[in-house]
C-alpha cells in the first residue's frame, strides 16, 4: 500500500472511530444542525488562524467554541427559535471566513480542500493529531457517558439527581468542536456533519442499547471510510465526498436488512 494511502486510511479511521459515538449523541439530542453550524464556523477559524499565524486546528477549535458560546448567549433571549439562530450563525461564520480569506491576498489557500476535505494529502503529523485528539475525545466521552445519557433522556430529572447539566452540555459542545477540528482535513467542513449522523443513523436499527449504537456507528464510519477511499481510488473521484457517499450507501443498505429485536 502506498504510504499516502495508508496515511489517508489511518486518518479516516481515526475520525470515524470518534465521530461514531459522538454522532450518536448528535442524533439522540437532535443536534445535527448544531454540528453543521460548528463545522461552518471552522472556515472562519481557518481564516483567523492564517491571519494571526497560529496553528490551524487551534484556530478552528477556538472559533467553534466561541460560536457555541455566542449561540448559548443568543438562546437566552428566547425571541428567535434555535434553528433560526443556528442558520444565522452558520452562514455568517462561513461567509465571514470566506471574506477574511479574500483579504489574505498574498496567501494561496486551497479552499476546496477545506470545504470538501483533502484526505489524500494528510501527513503523519495530521494522523498523529487525529489519533491523539480522538483518544482524548473518546476518553472524555467514556467518563461523561452516564451524565450525558441522563441529560439526553431528561435534563431536569438529571439535574435533580445531581448531574451538573450546564457543564456536561458545555463539555459535549467542546468535544464536538474538537472533532470538527480533527475531521476538517478528512471530509471538509461542509461534510463533517454527515460523518457524525449517517453512521449513527445506520446503526440504530441494529442496536438495543445506547452503547451498542455508539459502537456500531464507529464501525459503520470505518466501513464508509474504507469503502469511500477504495471507490475514490478506483473511480478517481474526490475522496471526502466518496466517503460520505459510501456512508449513505451503507445507510440505505441497512434499510433493506430485516430488523432484529
Amino acid at each position: 500500500m502506498d504510504e499516502f494511502l495508508l496515511r489517508a486510511l489511518l486518518a479516516g479511521l481515526g475520525v470515524a472511530l470518534v465521530a461514531g459515538p459522538l454522532g450518536a449523541f448528535v442524533v439522540w439530542r437532535r443536534m445535527a444542525y448544531f454540528g453543521d453550524t460548528l463545522a461552518h464556523s471552522a472556515l472562519l477559524g481557518v481564516a483567523l488562524a492564517y491571519l494571526l499565524s497560529i496553528d490551524l486546528n487551534l484556530g478552528v477549535l477556538i472559533t467553534c467554541v466561541a460560536v457555541a458560546l455566542i449561540l448559548l448567549a443568543l438562546q437566552r433571549q428566547q425571541r428567535l427559535a434555535s434553528d433560526t439562530l443556528l442558520g444565522i450563525l452558520a452562514h455568517t461564520a462561513l461567509s465571514l471566513g470566506l471574506v477574511t480569506l479574500a483579504f489574505l491576498e498574498t496567501l494561496r489557500v486551497d479552499l476546496m480542500g477545506f470545504l470538501f476535505g483533502d484526505i489524500l494529502a494528510v501527513g503523519w503529523r495530521d494522523v498523529a493529531l487525529i489519533w491523539a485528539g480522538g483518544l482524548v475525545v473518546l476518553g472524555a466521552l467514556a467518563l461523561l457517558w452516564r451524565p450525558l445519557l441522563a441529560i439526553t433522556v431528561h435534563e431536569e430529572l438529571a439535574q435533580v439527581e445531581g448531574v451538573p447539566v450546564v457543564r456536561v452540555r458545555l463539555a459535549l459542545t467542546l468535544l464536538l468542536a474538537v472533532v470538527v477540528a480533527l475531521a476538517m482535513k478528512v471530509v471538509g467542513i461542509l461534510l463533517i456533519t454527515s460523518l457524525l449522523i449517517i453512521p449513527a443513523a445506520a446503526a440504530r436499527r441494529f442496536s438495543r442499547t445506547p452503547e451498542a449504537m455508539a459502537a456500531l456507528a464507529a464501525l459503520a464510519g470505518c466501513l464508509a471510510v474504507a469503502g469511500g477511499l477504495a471507490g475514490s481510488l478506483r473511480l478517481d473521484t474526490p475522496a471526502g465526498p466518496s466517503v460520505v457517499v459510501a456512508a449513505a450507501l451503507l445507510f440505505a443498505l441497512t434499510g433493506l436488512v430485516p430488523r432484529r429485536g
Binding site: V153, T209, P210
Partner: peptide
C-alpha cells in the same frame, strides 16, 4: 432513535 430499555433507563 435512542435505544433504551427500562433497565438502562433506571441505571441512569
Amino acid at each position: 432513535v435512542l435505544p433504551l430499555t427500562v433497565r438502562r433507563f433506571l441505571r441512569l
